[in-house]
Design a protein around this nucleic acid. Structure first.
Length: 188
DNA sequence: CCTCTGATCTTCT
DNA sequence: GAAGATCAGAGGG
């Protein structure tokens, strides 16, 4: 599953010619039309969710709670609306700029440890919706490995903030690097 | 440590 | 008109 493959890879944002980058440490999978927690549940196809029906490697950015821009990666093929939400990264490049985007934060572990935080730190907004991560000059992912991670390096738990989704809220579709200090607060 | 709440606005009913 | 893939601060233990 792509949500696992993305862990440990490097997310790169180019802003004013400078690299802002971090290692992906936490993701959540949203599984298409069956998944009650996904925007595409039931085959819903609207102006917003249309992006989820794009080809794999496309970004899906939407505004959450009127405040936060959340970054997803579409993971399958055209018309298969599955995506992975990037929930946290461990900052490694351009950290000083990230702090400017998050003026109230004092330590690295609070910079990008949540989907809304990550969006703010990297200055991602809806202008970054529906970008091709393979060709985009401003947002892309660099491979840090090609082998799958060992199973004990990854912890899987239920997703966060989807209690309304019943059975789907109980499924272990949230993944993070075991023991990493930069995952979002509610971790196991 | 924990729980509660306001902020803020797009999207869909 | 209501809900929402969240965050940070306040208040209590």
């Amino acid at each position: 599953m792509v949500a696992r493959e993305l862990l440990g890879q490097r997310l790169v944002r180019i802003l004013n010619g400078q690299r802002l980058a971090g290692i992906i440490v936490e993701t959540e999978a949203y599984l298409g039309v069956e998944d009650r927690a996904a925007h595409s549940f039931g085959g819903r196809r609207t102006a917003r969710t249309e992006t989820m029906y794009c080809d794999g490697g496309t970004t899906y950015v939407y505004l959450n709670y009127g405040i936060h821009n959340l970054l997803n990666v579409v993971t399958e093929t055209v018309d298969a609306p599955t995506a992975v939400l990037l929930r946290a990264i461990e900052p490694v490049e351009g950290i000083d700029v990230m702090y400017k985007h998050r003026p109230k934060i004092r330590n690295d572990s609070g910079l990008c440890s949540g989907p809304g935080k990550l969006g703010a730190a990297l200055a991602i907004d809806r202008s970054h919706d529906r970008l091709d991560l393979v060709t985009s000059p401003v947002l892309f992912i660099e491979r840090t490995r090609t082998r799958p991670l060992a199973k004990n390096k990854i912890t899987a738990t239920p997703r966060i903030g989807v209690d309304y989704a019943g059975f789907w809220a109980t499924r272990p579709l949230r993944f993070h690097l075991t023991g990493n200090k930069h995952v979002s607060a509610r971790s196991v």
